[in-house]
Design a protein around this nucleic acid. Structure first.
Lengths: 198, 198, 198, 198
DNA sequence: ATCTAAGCGAGACGGTACGTCGCGTCTTTGC
DNA sequence: GCAAAGACGCGACGTACCGTCTCGCTTAGAT
């Protein structure tokens, strides 16, 4: 399958793999994604360049693995107190804090940028990070719909995007502040719509 | 005030400026943003590298100027037929076509990516391209609110983001297709909300 | 005769000409010949680049004019006390001091180097600086020959070169020290030859 | 001790080294020293610029190595037929031919010029090319002195300079022709001196 | 005394080369 | 046979000067 005699992953050095992840995450925080280099990672990790090239196709892929190696543990479902508005606000407020934290921002923004320009990479990025995030909202909305909290015909996937995209967009393009007030208003307006009630 | 003795813009060569814009737009379409180089632009434009460095701080800034030099003419208001849903759908469908056009995509995506990673650049990008786009939606929604088509207390700026962000996000991160059906559903769901109607 | 409509030298700015000479001599002393630039001279002299290009073909030509503008006043004949050996030693000892003086060295070495590599320039350099120097020695030796101090058939031009070249060579290529002892020995050996006396 | 982590010379590519020498010598003959560029050498040699910068500090140093890599094999002693004048004339006549040969001239003149302006480089140039040349004359003169052909107290080093410097000077500064007649007269006058014989 | 064309300071321009950085490949030497 | 180390060919970086070319401006010399 591999076109170049694939490396034997059973012989792979776990020590080097960890060192590369640590170096990549540290460096992206210090110098930013554009000035992050393979040589820099290798040097900081005390590793030969070839060891990186052997296992990853690009610096973005290294960073993606480094980021998800730490993040893969997390995941689950949104809380369900029976009040979908309250639950969404609670989780989005926590997400506000997360995206305002520099340590989280740097590698995540780097990945988003890399994904936006590199179509190949974006497939992995979307599948491993974005889709799971959308899914937990979709699931929670579906539960709410079954419970009669939402209209019967509601497109829950689209609903999830209506909640997450304005948030992501503000953060990524810096078109606005990420505050509790913003997410509260967003949840309310998404749920009630803009139309006047009959 | 200037840290390097600013060049005299009255002596500037308009011919070179245009040639640089043309070359930058052509090249970003041909090779993509990452492989776009200052040397490439200079060579294609028949211009010395220094002429680019004299007037712009980065290739992203060149591209931004090139893109807006062409785009600055456009701008206006959304149509107003009295039916806000129909008007929004009409315009968003046109925007679907625009964002599916490779000639428009390449430089715009390049700018979005550059803006996402470079905070300085993003200020200009947001102010010159994104904000004006949001504003025309905000204005149309305001008109609709005054006309009683929307609830009295509606946050029209937030409404505009709810319409545009899911669209932008799908396009930028490739999380979904941009279709007429998608924008139609988006408009309907934004206007009506997810809640069941009393 | 001129292929480009020669400049009108009657309108020439004497003030600029002096400023260029001063700047060129000062700069060659400060940064050396290789790092001497036309732009640097123009800037230091408070002069436009074109003013230099209008009147000189190269930085070497500027330097040559600058150097000879100061040096043209000097010139004359060697002393004649009747003792040719003593006269030569006296003058060469003075020349040792001159060539060990950094203020004289820098531009003179620069000119020698430029002359060595540029055949066109070397013609002027030789004619204006080297030949006159050789001539005064040739003249003094001729007088000595007429006076019977030298053998009747002596080639006085070659004699002058035998005196000056070992001196110049040591200085230019740094193959040896320039000392009084050296020039004394040189004069003696040139006059007496290496052969044992019959 | 090294200020930049010196390269590992055991890993050095001999193929590249030779290609660089060949390219440098060919180019200096074709375009001259001033128009000789590192980029030109690298390109002609099919080598990266960095490979040159890794091993040499300047184009002059490259040329010096290139020149001596070929020339290091040669070297020896002057012929000794018992007639010092004849021997000197024979060798100097051969040297006349050598210095009138363009293929030899171009790189040698380039080195002389570079050595004249760069004190650091001149140390190597003198030690590797000039001094050995002077030494063979010094040695031959010493032999002649022991054989009684020269005066007992003769300074043989100075004698060698008296033979070589007028020659070098004429060539380098173009103050005169290099002919057999010139070197014959030079040898005679150096050996006999200018004084009339008692 | 006025006009007009040249010299002038200034510096933008199309270029070439600089010396550096990082790429991705390849090779050498342990382990 | 993977890994650390790093030399290699390559391409782009951003800078420094080159020599040419306008731009006003000032400043004679001819009218």
């Amino acid at each position: 399958m591999a076109n170049k005699t694939a490396p034997d992953s059973s012989r792979r050095s776990e020590r080097s793999r960890r060192a590369i992840f640590d170096a990549a995450l540290a460096l992206v925080g210090e110098v930013g994604y554009d000035k992050l280099t393979i040589e820099g990672i290798a040097s900081r990790a005390g590793v030969g360049k070839q060891t990186i090239y052997r296992w990853w196709p690009s610096k973005a892929a290294v960073l993606l693995d480094a980021f998800t190696a730490d993040a893969d543990t997390y995941r689950g479902a949104l809380p369900d107190t029976g009040d979908v508005a309250a639950d969404l606000k609670a989780v989005l407020r926590a997400t506000v804090d997360e995206f305002n934290d520099p340590a989280f921002q740097a590698p995540y923004r780097a990945l988003a940028v890399a994904g936006a320009s590199d179509e190949e990479l974006s497939r992995t990025f979307v599948a491993r990070l974005l889709e799971p995030g959308i899914d937990v909202y979709t699931d929670r909305l579906r539960v709410a719909r079954e419970a009669g909290e939402l209209a019967a015909g509601t497109d829950v996937r689209l609903g999830a995007e209506m909640l997450l995209s304005p948030f992501s967009q503000r953060w990524l393009m810096r078109t606005g502040e990420l505050t509790y007030a913003f997410v509260d208003a967003l949840v309310d307006q998404v749920l009630h719509g803009l139309r006047p009630r009959g």
